[in-house]
């Protein structure tokens, strides 16, 4: 690691983190971490426990770094509540007030940004439309699917039109349609000049949103730059996809014929596929299961390949 501050995104830099550390009792969250992040989409990539969520919470102001400083749009975050007008944050976990509809949730949080009722309602409407939940906006959030809950969390972060948007594992648990929606929205926001930071432990997810990544490991920035460099490393390690479906045997039979598929493991209710072309495989699996009525239920990536790359970089 050099002394140069890791940098991603355009100029001017929206987020400036300087020598920030945060620890939980005797566990390090982030350690003397500095990074500059500017407009565009930046992927914050690292294995579970690397410090991504801690960094997100420190940048968002939920946690104050025990040492060091965070600045948003050149203004220090500490003791400066007005800076929060520039920040939208999507937490990793599901958290909602009981009995609220999606619309009430977004309007309430938007009004807490100082917007009056009509402006907040209009802003919420636009944000809900952007995440594709207009038809379900008046349903209670408790009735939403996991993917819809992720999208309504994104809507509350967007509604007040911040120029710094932080999304902690936003694709967790999303269905293919919701996933596509969120990915497209993130790309769109980044292209429009918003500084978007997305954390994930799945390289492929980040790859669909941006080329710029910051790799985090053990609370430190391990590397920063273009995702292709990571991809080159990762290509040596086949990517694993875990697919839940009703007819895994038939799906496995379809998948083995593809050149990029290097291994297929079969179980009663799922298939585990190792591929050298994750992008193609992520497109192919939902399509195949839908076309052949295999009862697609979802797919996740244990992403051991990324762990292997991190191990390589650490060593």
């Amino acid at each position: 690691m050099t002394d140069a501050i890791p940098t991603t995104g355009g100029d001017p830099k929206t987020i400036q983190v300087r020598k920030a550390s945060y620890w939980y009792d005797d566990v390090i969250g982030i350690n003397d971490l500095s990074v500059d992040i500017g407009p565009g989409v930046t992927g914050l990539l690292g294995p579970n426990g690397a410090g991504k969520s801690t960094l997100m919470k420190v940048i968002s102001g939920q946690l104050s770094p025990r040492t060091g400083e965070v600045r948003i749009n050149k203004r220090p975050l500490a003791g400066n509540p007005e800076v929060f007008a520039d920040i939208g944050f999507v937490p990793e976990f599901d958290a909602f007030w009981q009995g609220m509809s999606g619309r009430e949730f977004v309007v309430y949080l938007t009004r807490l940004h100082g917007l009056d009722k009509s402006n907040a309602a209009a802003a919420a409407e636009r944000a809900i439309e952007r995440v594709g939940l207009t038809d379900d906006a008046d349903r209670p959030v408790s009735d939403y699917s996991k993917g819809m809950r992720q999208r309504i969390k994104v809507a509350q972060a967007l509604a007040h039109e911040p120029n710094c948007l932080l999304l902690d594992e936003p694709l967790n648990g999303t269905d293919p349609v919701g996933r596509r929606h969120i990915i497209d929205l993130i790309r769109e926001l980044g292209a429009a000049g918003t500084t978007v930071v997305v954390s994930s432990h799945v390289l492929h997810e980040i790859e669909q949103m941006t080329d710029e990544v910051v790799l985090i490991h053990s609370g430190r920035v391990l590397a920063d730059g273009h995702i292709q460099e990571i991809r080159d490393l990762i290509d040596e390690h086949p990517h694993t996809i875990h697919v839940d479906c009703d007819r895994p045997r038939e799906l496995a039979a379809e998948l083995v014929g593809f050149e990029d598929v290097v291994r297929v493991e079969l179980a009663d209710d799922h298939v585990r596929v190792a591929t050298r072309d994750p992008a193609a495989c992520y497109d192919r699996i939902p399509r195949l299961t839908l076309e052949n009525d295999f009862g697609f239920q979802g797919m996740t990536s244990p992403d051991n390949d990324l762990d292997a790359v991190f191990q390589y970089l650490v060593d």
Binding site: G61, P81, F84, I87, A95, W97, L109, L112, H113
Partner: peptide, 15 residues
């Protein structure tokens, strides 16, 4: 406990 506090803390309102 219901993890909604961050939504409130991250608004431009003095604590």
């Amino acid at each position: 406990e219901q993890r909604t506090l961050p939504y409130l803390l991250l608004r431009p309102i003095p604590r």
